[in-house]
Design a protein around this nucleic acid. Sequence first.
DNA 1: CCACTAAGCGATCAATTGCTCAATCGCTGC
DNA 2: GCAGCGATTGAGCAATTGATCGCTTAGTGG
Lengths: 321, 321
Amino acid sequence: MSTRPDPEPSLQDEAARAGWLYYVGGLTQDQIAQDLGVSRQRAQRLVSRAMAEGLIHVRLNHRIGACVDLEKALTARFGLTRCRVAPDLGPGSDGVRAIAPAAAAEFERFLRMSDPLVLALGTGRALRGMVDAVSDGIAAEHHRLVSLIGNIAPDGSASFFDVVMRLADKVRAPHYPMPVPVISSTPEENAAFHALPPIRRVVDLARQADVIFVGIGQMSDDAPLLKDGFVTREELDAMQAAGAVGEVAGWVFRRDGRYLEVGTNRRTGGVRVEPGLDRPAIGIAAGATKVPAIAGALTARIVNGLVTDEPTARAVLALAG
Amino acid sequence: MSTRPDPEPSLQDEAARAGWLYYVGGLTQDQIAQDLGVSRQRAQRLVSRAMAEGLIHVRLNHRIGACVDLEKALTARFGLTRCRVAPDLGPGSDGVRAIAPAAAAEFERFLRMSDPLVLALGTGRALRGMVDAVSDGIAAEHHRLVSLIGNIAPDGSASFFDVVMRLADKVRAPHYPMPVPVISSTPEENAAFHALPPIRRVVDLARQADVIFVGIGQMSDDAPLLKDGFVTREELDAMQAAGAVGEVAGWVFRRDGRYLEVGTNRRTGGVRVEPGLDRPAIGIAAGATKVPAIAGALTARIVNGLVTDEPTARAVLALAG
DNA sequence: CCACTAAGCGATCAATTGCTCAATCGCTGC
DNA sequence: GCAGCGATTGAGCAATTGATCGCTTAGTGG
């Protein structure tokens, strides 16, 4: 119908255009096919691809009453500076899916600030989801992104630690990974790493971060630290016996949010998030198994802000009354 | 399935939740119906309502190559400070639909700035669309919104002029309407209005605006000024004979962007956007009939930024080559 | 040069969705 | 008290959509 003189649109361009016509324009896939001069099946695949690759962002522009109430309750109970509760996505669904857009929006608030900031980040699935949901094209060259946690895994795989890198790539900000083992095999090895001047500089930068975003891990039998091979079954058992319920940036804490003095905490690299900071320290976490961990981190004010979902928020309040 | 203890969710809450489950969660309407405990038809109506009421925002997160090229070409040709070109929504569609999200994003950039700004706005369908697409919940109490154009219509209807009010309502910013006739019946009446001290204060505020957002109207036979009854057929004919092609905030200009010295310009209230400002003056406009008007406003630098759509961008470049 | 693999394409078909219509509900005014 | 009126509801149905399958094509390695 409309003649398009596109010389050579990339596949992504075509997918984006199809998604735009479908979701914003409200055209049917048949019309899109006709407009783009392709078969209907191809149009359908383009639309689906646009969504899958995150070319189309969908955000909820209404504060659902029940969620606002939970935010208020959490803020009051734990004295939070920021709190967002995303609506439930239904029983079968993944908490990370639900909180990723809200977490991204929260993060973008800081990205858009005009004063230069140092933004410190942990790792984990929740943060990964957040980064994927951040809009690209927000230029943030004036901010610095620094990792709180080491990027050397026991098996050498670094795939899980590119949160800062992926983000830096998206927003074109300088970034500072933490080139130390997540957990060294001995306290001495850890100390040796941290004695090196280049690493000291990264650590100092992370310590002076203006804003902190971290996931919160549980220390139950399905602990991420165990699944990813950072702690052994025996170490986990020992720390559980010592009261471990959760972990932030690899540092394990008890039910009341106090850090353990034993176990892998003596060998954990990177920067520990100190309780009671006056700067924003936002926890991003959702899921039934994380409830005690989240409650602990909030109680001790390891984090003073929270992004979570509806069932988790309810459970945390029920647990911590 | 999941038990929801919602005491009394409002209709909007329910719609928002349904939309969230559908668009973000990817559930089918049957599942949503089951989850919310309503019939499938009701779920479908809630989802549709969520979209219609703008509770769900969809944004394209990819710069389509062809649009980027047009932005570059317009920027180079007219020396613009900002330029956004939204993809075509297809032949039958309305240009305003296409540019509203992009315009809103542009506007939100300024809203989010931490320094207090004076933001001046015109009127028109394009600005109205932009305002509707602005996310609510961006607190902007520190900015001031001021209208460039009078809010007294010949027939007394003010429905068209609530752009600033609607916006102020959304972002909770103080706002300053311009309580003068859009176009007075005599130059003397206009002068009398502008001599009043309270009006002088609003005018002064608008003159010192840090950022300006305006629509661009055409002066062809379907001119908005004529349709809305601000000028008579005879006045339009006379101004067309004098070379009128477009209008910004009610002030009529010629093909080269110079303001007319005749016609209603001698009686137009409010603040004229002066050519060549050093502050951002963003035009929001799309549509085949507006092409000469847009080209004129760009040529004379009445606006130094533009948000438009793909076919309009092509046409403007073709005309002003 | 040929076999093999992976990716993309179009057709068919079942599931999902959105629209129309008649019935019901709740409210207003007589 | 009841007729009238608008809004809301559920049922049925047609259009739209997404998945599967076999086929073709392009690229790879022997």
